[in-house]
Amino acid sequence: MLVSIDAPYVDTSAADLGLALGGPELPALAVRDLRLPGGVRLRLRLLGASHQVVLPTPTGDLTETVACLPGRPPHLPGTLHDEPNGYRFTATVLRPAAGELRARVAALRADLADDPYALVGVFPGDPDAVTALAVRPDPPDGSVSWRTWHAYPQTNELVLTETVVALR
C-alpha cells in the first residue's frame, strides 16, 4: 500500500537513527494492521521519524522502533540477537552511486505499491524521501519477518533493516 504523507520529513540521515525495543506506540502518520496466514497479527506504523512495528505476543507486545528518537542517543546496530526472546535484527546503510538511489526508490515503490503486506510512505518535497515496510507473509520456519527501507535523498543514503522473530 502506497500512501502520500502530508507531513514534513523529520529524519535527517542514517547516523541519526536509533533502535528501540519496547515502549509505547508513538504518534503515527499511517498505520496498516495485518493478519498473516496462520493468524499472526502485526501493525506497521509510519512515523514522522521513521517506523514502528508492533507484534502482539502471548507475553505482551513486541514493539520495534527505528527512528530519530528525542532524548536518546542515536545508535542503529548492524546486528542485534536477543536469542532468549527469538528476536534478530540487522541493519545496513548503503550509499549508492550517483543516480542509483532514485532508481532503487522507484523500483521499491513499484514493487510494494500493491503488496497486501506492505506500507510505503512518500514524504512531500522529494519523491525519493520514502519509508517502506514489508512483511514476509508465510515464512517457512515458524517465524515472522519484515524488512524496512529508509531513503535519505539529502545524504544519498538507503538504510535497510531486516527483523526475524521466532514465534513460540
Rank of each mutant, 00 (worst) to 15 (best):
V93D: 01
V3M: 08
E162R: 08
S13Q: 09
V122F: 08
P24Y: 10
Y152V: 07
L34R: 01
R136E: 15
V105G: 03
G125C: 03
A129N: 05
G18I: 07
D126Y: 05
L29I: 06
V54M: 08
V54Y: 07
P116R: 02
W146L: 07
P153A: 03
Q154L: 06
C68Q: 15
G142H: 03
P8L: 09
G86R: 00
L2H: 13
P153S: 06
S4D: 15
R109C: 10
G18Q: 08
G18T: 08
A30D: 05
L62K: 07
E25K: 15
P27M: 04
P77R: 10
A132N: 09
E64F: 14
F123P: 02
V120F: 04
L167Y: 00
L19H: 03
A97E: 14
P27Q: 03
V120R: 00
H150W: 12
L133K: 11
D33I: 12
V144N: 04
H81C: 13
P37N: 00
L94W: 14
D33T: 12
A97L: 13
P96I: 08
E100W: 09
L167D: 06
V130A: 01
S13L: 02
G71V: 03
R35M: 07
T163R: 07
H150E: 12
P127F: 10
G23T: 06
G71I: 08
L167R: 01
V122D: 08
S50A: 14
P96N: 04
Y152N: 08
L94Y: 13
Y9G: 09
D111C: 10
V122H: 05
P140T: 11
T57H: 07
P153Q: 12
S13P: 01
A15C: 11
L158F: 03
Q154I: 04
P84A: 01
G23D: 05
A113E: 13
G23C: 04
V31S: 09
A7L: 10
L108A: 01
L19S: 03
S4R: 15
P96R: 01
T59Y: 15
V120N: 01
P139Q: 04
L55W: 02
V130N: 02
C68I: 15
A91L: 05
L19G: 03
E162S: 11
T148I: 07
S145M: 02
V66M: 10
P8T: 07
T63A: 12
A129M: 06
V54N: 06
L94G: 07
L80M: 10
L167P: 01
